[in-house]
Simulated scan of single mutants.
Amino acid sequence: MKKRVIVLILDSLGVGVMADAKKYHPEDEGANTFYHILNTTPLKIPNLERFGINKILNHPRLKRIDNNIASYGIMNLMHHGADSFEGHNEIMGSKPKKAYLAPFVDNIQEVKIALETEGYQVSIPDTNLPYLLVNDFVIVADNIETDYGQIYNVSAPLDYIPFEDVLKIGQSVRKNVKVNRVIALGGECVTSKHFQQSVERRADGLVGLNSPKSNVYKKGYQVRHLGFGISPQKQLPTLAIKAGLEVSLIGKMQDVIYCDGAKKFPGVDTDRVMRDITNEMDSVKNGLIAATVQETDLAGHAQDPKRYANRIELVDEYLTEIIDRMTDQDILIISADHGNDPIIGHSQHTREKTFLLAYQKQLAPVYVGERRTLSDIAATAADYLGIEPTENGTTFLG
């Protein structure tokens, strides 16, 4: 019997601060992304209401529908902090590893020596603003758009160096540091001089490329996320490929999840991501379609609740078509990876629980409880597809 699992992640749409945030993320106290968007915008989400979202949110402006059509619950983050890469890899079945936290300056000499040993030309152009310049074009430094000491970026102007070479440098850096993530990225129609002029120090001391200012995202953008302690062989997409099933990764999902053999559909625009899902429902007959809507997270970083609400409404509109295209053997699972409360007072991710909605036309909806890890999504999908279990997570099918 052919079966499909459709996983849809609304990036950063959290539903309330985690219990441990008071200790580790005190600045997030009181965060509740979804609830606060409802407080501050005229958000209309009839399909999510039908699914039963207000049994989780308990917001006075939404209908509480007793005959909801989806099973529902709440998910806790097992990974430390509130990180999209770690969150997505946890969703796909990886057990999070505790990574080392440090600014790049703490590792700069070790990385410099390692790259020079591999034959690269490496310099530190400005000791007052320390970063590595590799082969005259590639900048290795802190990621100054995320939490302190979690991520190092390897950035390059792709008119001067192929992305494959940037990725090799990134992999060399990855081998010599233990931080959560190393990101290799690049864009076209930008100069090396402009890149170097876009390096800056933020208030907490991190030094790195201001990526939006550098224009790296504007044309020909390519990116690869290199995680710490991640084994794709034990994740849902690779296990599905191994079992002979089809796998499609859409939007940010294909940026942060590695799966050899999957069809990949890059894209940030929400309309494009949702159209790719519906198109793949015509193509994939037996397997996994996994997608991420990223513009919600970008609206959170911009502290723009109206834009955030607009993107949620667009997703809700597409749910009508997705439901219509679902067969009796399909499961649709909708969730998030953390929070990004646009009114909490800062522009970074917030450590929040996420909602869980699971719809299958032939299964009666139930409350599946408060789950210990986001990996329960992958564990449930693997159980339903009848494939090898993921590294982490417990199925809620029963």
Results as ranks from 00 to 15, higher is better:
1 M>Q: 06
4 R>Y: 02
6 I>H: 02
6 I>V: 15
7 V>N: 10
10 L>D: 04
10 L>S: 12
14 G>K: 03
14 G>E: 08
19 A>P: 04
25 H>C: 14
26 P>L: 08
33 T>I: 13
34 F>I: 04
38 L>D: 10
41 T>Q: 14
43 L>Y: 03
44 K>M: 09
44 K>Y: 04
44 K>E: 14
45 I>M: 15
46 P>K: 05
52 G>T: 07
54 N>D: 10
54 N>T: 06
54 N>M: 01
55 K>V: 01
56 I>D: 05
57 L>Y: 03
59 H>Y: 08
60 P>V: 08
64 R>V: 12
64 R>M: 15
66 D>V: 10
66 D>K: 15
67 N>I: 04
72 Y>K: 12
73 G>P: 07
76 N>W: 02
76 N>A: 06
85 F>D: 10
92 M>F: 15
95 K>Y: 13
97 K>C: 06
101 L>H: 07
104 F>Y: 04
108 I>T: 10
114 A>Q: 04
121 Q>I: 12
122 V>I: 08
124 I>E: 13
130 P>M: 05
135 N>C: 09
139 I>L: 10
141 A>D: 02
145 E>Y: 10
147 D>Q: 13
148 Y>N: 11
149 G>C: 12
150 Q>L: 14
152 Y>T: 11
155 S>C: 13
162 P>C: 01
163 F>C: 10
165 D>T: 14
170 G>P: 08
171 Q>N: 14
178 K>I: 00
179 V>G: 04
180 N>W: 04
183 I>D: 05
184 A>N: 10
184 A>S: 15
187 G>K: 06
190 V>G: 07
190 V>C: 13
190 V>K: 11
190 V>P: 03
192 S>I: 04
193 K>Q: 14
195 F>H: 12
197 Q>M: 12
197 Q>P: 01
198 S>K: 05
201 R>P: 00
203 A>L: 08
203 A>V: 12
205 G>T: 09
206 L>D: 00
207 V>F: 02
208 G>D: 09
209 L>M: 13
210 N>L: 06
211 S>E: 11
212 P>T: 03
213 K>F: 05
216 V>S: 06
220 G>P: 05
221 Y>G: 09
222 Q>A: 00
222 Q>E: 15
226 L>G: 08
229 G>V: 01
233 Q>A: 15
235 Q>E: 14
237 P>C: 04
241 I>P: 05
248 S>Q: 08
251 G>E: 06
251 G>Q: 11
252 K>E: 03
255 D>E: 15
255 D>Q: 10
260 D>H: 11
263 K>L: 12
265 F>T: 06
268 V>T: 14
271 D>Y: 10
271 D>S: 11
274 M>G: 07
275 R>Y: 06
275 R>A: 08
277 I>F: 03
286 N>R: 01
288 L>Q: 02
290 A>F: 07
295 E>H: 01
295 E>Q: 15
308 Y>Q: 08
311 R>G: 00
314 L>T: 13
314 L>C: 00
316 D>A: 03
317 E>S: 13
322 I>W: 09
322 I>S: 04
323 I>Y: 13
325 R>P: 02
327 T>A: 00
327 T>Y: 00
330 D>H: 07
332 L>T: 08
333 I>Q: 07
335 S>M: 06
337 D>Q: 07
342 P>F: 11
342 P>I: 12
354 T>M: 05
361 K>N: 09
366 V>Y: 12
367 Y>K: 13
369 G>P: 11
375 S>G: 03
380 T>P: 04
382 A>I: 04
384 Y>E: 06
387 I>M: 03
393 G>R: 09
